[in-house]
Write a protein that binds this DNA or RNA. Structure first.
Length: 743
DNA sequence: AAAAAAC
């Protein structure tokens, strides 16, 4: 095992020596016998630089990566794009123009002011854990970092840095995709080249046994790598787990719980036939085949391909029927780019009026959880929570749809914790116990955010969570797993990676949640999600949630869910929305000016762009214009992604320009304006982007900028989204634009 | 056509 993933080399172990323990660091002080780190020599670099064609058709980095090819075959892994050959990953689209032809926007800035991150060490994500210092993602004060940028020229009229941690000044410009730079490629970080090999790792059996009898108090905080600063303030006064009294003082959960019969009955509710069946003639996905031939991971001992057939779903079950596949005879094949409204799920609708006076305790949650929810600001259940919690507690598979910002995380999170508690409770504190619940999210930021909500709930009853997502060193995640966690919250890639490495075993996962479930069924996500679900315990409970849940999830439901209860909240339509939708029809050349005019305001603004490059460019433009703005997109490393999102949350910037990585699930308090600099192509994208504002009943405005030739398409999209928006022709300086900024 | 997701 490479030592950087071996917990016995953790910061706690061993006397401190000079230099970095991290092989990826310049100051690395190699231990005796440590293998010499392979580096590229100048000739190799030159060969590489010379041989690389421009544009996206260049050979994939991943092809040359070490170790990848001798790894055991793993499902259809090889079909997935390798990390290194994602187009645009480390080089944004430049349209193929040679870099030297383009003006360098900052070419007069002295290079030596910049940290030379890229030259001789791997990028953050690849770097081995810095065991000799706190994680770069942690909340440690900046002052313990070398102040490499203190002499950097100021960015114009920006306020002096001295009064606060220099959040921007330590932002190495070279880490940012250098959209406009004429910098030669060769000084970029070589993402995959000198990274330690994983594929030839020795099998699990040679891993050191971890002491099962190690006292609990030695456990560091599982989530110490989580940036504390972006936690909502409501957690700050929560007692830490370590201080908490032993679990024996916990009230007996099952005894004081009201009988099930006290909970509101849903079964006698009339079906949704009173709603306009606007979608009934839409093609259905219900007949999509569930790829039965796929055996999941090719590691035979974990293969679920021989799993017994699921019981046949019955069409009715005590009023909870989902009637999920009413028509299996229609075929549906959509060309890429089609934006269709899939058939609506037949669901049990809960109205806000029905849940008046119902408490979380009434729904079946235990005392500690209820108390923790109150601390989190959830005193009484929202409708979607009241609707789904009893069914989750009853062990049913559940599909839940509640509009953006309606409290879905607690709707699945709180009962999930309660279920685990009932099932073996928090008594099992064994080291390396297998996780019993899994929550999958499409983006890392969302996984982090979900954990921020679930973790306090879990801790309130003595259960542990950990995040498993990419872009950060896996060491902490692996050691958390080795100490033993109950709930995994993460994204698909890293979870599969750890499964493949034999470091994560989902075989005891009895509750699995897919947040943004419809998105998780999209091309590119579906197969990893299927592979992961196949790893979970047979017959385990599955919960699928999304604001736009529809029959796109049919393939998953078909394979993994049994007679799911489908819930939604009545009256969640445009008329009840707190969002004001506007479309500005503009000349393309005016886009920047109009955005500048729109963001000239007090509140928080989230701007969506279609591409990473434009998000970056727009953020820089706004910064240059004196607006405090930053960006969020997949070209940033995870530390920067986390930090930049935190900058909006904390109010250090008022404007965040993001790609659709921020479209789903991300909650930032008090975003009152969403600008779509590029109109979305899909109505769901519109709904999710706009759902970043108007959350939990607050008001918000969504402004979509379109060129006039897109008007028709926009009309159609809004119709699919069932949104009524006003169209206005606008030019820079128009009062109609500044009025919007004033909203 | 883009974005996301592993090291």
């Amino acid at each position: 095992m490479p030592k950087n993933f071996d917990p016995k080399y953790s910061a706690k172990g061993g006397p401190s020596k000079g230099g970095s323990k991290s092989p990826g660091h310049r100051g690395h002080n190699a231990a005796e016998g440590a293998p010499k780190k392979a580096r590229w020599n100048a000739g190799e670099r030159a060969d590489r630089a010379a041989g690389r064609p421009t544009g996206n058709d260049r050979p994939a980095y991943g092809n040359g990566r070490p170790a990848g090819n001798d790894r055991p075959a793993y499902g259809q892994r090889s079909e997935r794009p390798a990390y290194g050959d994602r187009p645009n990953r480390d080089r944004p689209s430049t349209g193929g123009a040679p870099r030297g032809d383009r003006p360098s926007y900052n070419s007069d800035r002295p290079r030596n002011d910049r940290p030379s991150y890229g030259n001789d060490r791997p990028s953050y994500g690849d770097r081995a854990p810095r065991t000799d210092r706190p994680s770069y993602n942690s909340d440690r004060p900046r002052t313990d970092r070398p102040a490499y940028n203190n002499d950097r020229p100021s960015y114009g009229d920006r306020a002096p840095r001295t009064d606060r941690p220099a959040y921007n000044s330590d932002r190495p410009r070279t880490e940012r995709p250098s959209y406009n730079s004429d910098r030669p490629r060769t000084d970029r970080p070589a993402y995959n080249n000198d990274r330690p090999s994983y594929g030839d790792r020795a099998p699990r059996t040679d891993r050191p046994a971890y002491n099962n009898d190690r006292p609990r108090t030695e456990r560091p905080s599982y989530n110490s790598d989580r940036p504390r600063t972006d936690r909502p303030a409501y957690n700050n006064d929560r007692p830490s787990y370590g201080d908490r009294a032993p679990r024996t003082d916990r009230p007996a959960y099952n005894n004081d719980r009201p009988a099930r019969t006290e909970r509101p009955s849903y079964g006698d509710r009339p079906a949704r036939t009173d709603r306009p069946a606007y979608n009934n003639d839409r093609p259905s996905y219900g007949d999509r085949s569930a790829r039965p031939e796929r055996g999941g991971y090719d590691r035979s001992e974990r293969s679920n391909s021989d799993r017994p057939a699921r019981p046949t779903r019955s069409a009715s079950d005590g009023g909870h029927s989902s009637n999920f596949y009413p028509d299996r005879d229609t075929k549906a094949h959509f060309a890429a780019g089609d934006d269709v409204v899939l058939e609506r799920l037949e669901a049990i609708a809960t109205t806000a009026a029905e849940v008046v006076g119902v408490s979380f305790g009434d729904l079946g949650l235990g005392e500690n959880i209820v108390r923790e929810l109150a601390t989190l600001g959830a005193a009484t259940p929202f409708p979607i929570q009241a609707a789904t919690i009893p069914d989750v507690l009853a062990g049913r598979d559940v599909l839940g749809r509640g509009k953006t910002g309606s409290g879905k995380t607690i709707a699945f999170g709180a009962p999930l914790v309660e279920k685990l508690l009932e099932n073996n409770g928090a008594k099992d504190r064994k080291m390396a116990r297998k996780p019993r619940a899994l929550i999958l999210a499409p983006t890392r930021e969302l996984a982090l955010q979900i954990d921020r909500t679930i973790q306090p709930i879990a801790r309130s009853v003595g259960l542990f969570t950990t995040q498993i997502y990419g872009g950060v060193p896996q060491y902490r995640q692996v050691s958390a797993l080795q100490r033993g966690v109950d709930i995994i919250i993460g994204t698909a890639g890293r979870i599969e990676d750890l499964i493949e490495q034999g470091r994560l075993d989902l075989s005891e996962v009895v509750v699995t949640v897919l947040d943004e479930a419809d998105y998780m069924c999209d091309l590119g996500f579906l197969e990893p999600v299927q592979r992961i679900l196949r790893q979970t315990k047979k017959g385990g409970q599955k919960l699928l949630f999304s604001a736009t849940l529809d029959k796109g999830v049919a393939s998953l439901v078909k394979e993994f869910l049994i007679n799911p209860a489908v819930h939604e909240v009545a009256g969640e339509d445009q008329a009840s929305s707190t969002i004001d939708h506007r479309v500005l029809v503009i000349e393309h050349r005016d886009k920047s000016a109009i955005i500048g005019q729109l963001v000239d305001r007090q509140g928080k603004t989230l701007i969506f762009s279609r591409t990473r490059a434009y998000a970056e460019q727009l953020a820089e433009q706004l910064e240059d214009a004196g607006v405090k703005a930053t960006s969020l997109h997949g070209d940033l490393n995870q530390a920067r992604r986390t930090r930049n999102l935190q900058m909006l949350t904390s109010g250090r910037v008022n404007v965040l320009v993001a790609t659709d990585v921020a479209a789903r699930g991300i909650h930032v308090d008090d975003i009152d304006l969403v600008i779509q600099a590029d109109a979305p192509d899909e109505y769901k994208t519109y709904l999710h982007r706009s759902g970043r504002t108007g959350r939990a009943g607050k008001s918000g405005t969504v402004v979509t900028l379109i060129p006039k030739q897109r008007r028709r398409r926009m009309d159609d999209l809004l119709e699919r989204a069932e949104i009524e928006a006003s169209f206005t022709n606008a030019a820079p300086g128009d009062t109609s634009v500044s009025d919007l900024a004033g909203l």
